[in-house]
Amino acid sequence: MTPLPAIADAAEPMVPIPFRIERTVKNLSDTFTVDLRPEEGRKPFHFAPGQFNMLYQFGVGEVPISISGDPQDPETLVHTIRAVGAVTQAMAGMKRGAVMGVRGPFGSAWPVEAVEGSDVVLVAGGVGLAPLRPAIYHILANRARYGRLVILYGARTPRDILFRAELEKWSSRLDTFVDVTVDRASGGWHGNVGVVTKLIGRGGFDPDNTAAMICGPETMMRFTIQALNDRGVSNERIHVSMERNMKCAVGFCGHCQFGGQFVCRDGPVFRFDRIEEMFLVREL
């Protein structure tokens, strides 16, 4: 396996590096995407799909955010952020030219290289599509190395569908199966209505030779794992991305502990059979 990209300045993992905002896009009412570029003289930013950064808003605070851009483009660092707390709300107001602090990349990655040769099923819920997008970019860029590619996505309503134009673009490819569902819709919606787990039976993948990658709220992942198991996909073929409180991202602060795992360092992407026992222990 290729070693994962790690933070550039290993001597001081706690210091953010300034990145300039090149472009901002409002994706949804509460979700936006920023393209960041390292300040002049800084090295390009390499990462593996599934890894995250700590993003720092000057004087306000720092939050862990997955990287949502293309791993093949180290000149542009892309983050998709949901404005839900003080820090992310402050970030939502930032314009092109403003500067954000970046520490990273941190954590484990989606096993995009290890699963070459098999079918790949990606199941995302809500803003959980963002951490999976780099994996999609990687797989599409190396499409011949994979079997069937199935992208299943669930959102609350049609207005909450993230990266809609891209989903439509991927959907129009002959070598990719994309299915989107919402919890409820009105007459203008011609797509699926129902939970995302309902889509799993329609992907046409080979359960014995499928790698599944799931990203969304824990409850959504729990039901999705169940549905994949029902289809015959075993837990060692399922990867999930976990979310926990994080302050340091390097295993010092202790906040992200999940049983014996540090989500920041051992995760956020876990092979499900390795955390299976803990996953159902409540409040762990």
Binding site: M14, Y56, C248, G254
Partner: peptide, 23 residues
């Protein structure tokens, strides 16, 4: 060993600091 961090600024907003505190 658990800690948290606090980000603070001076009144002018020109200086920011990060403090690590036992948690």
């Amino acid at each position: 060993f658990c800690t948290t961090v606090e980000d603070v600024t001076d009144l002018s907003g020109a200086i920011a600091e990060r403090w690590r505190k036992w948690d």
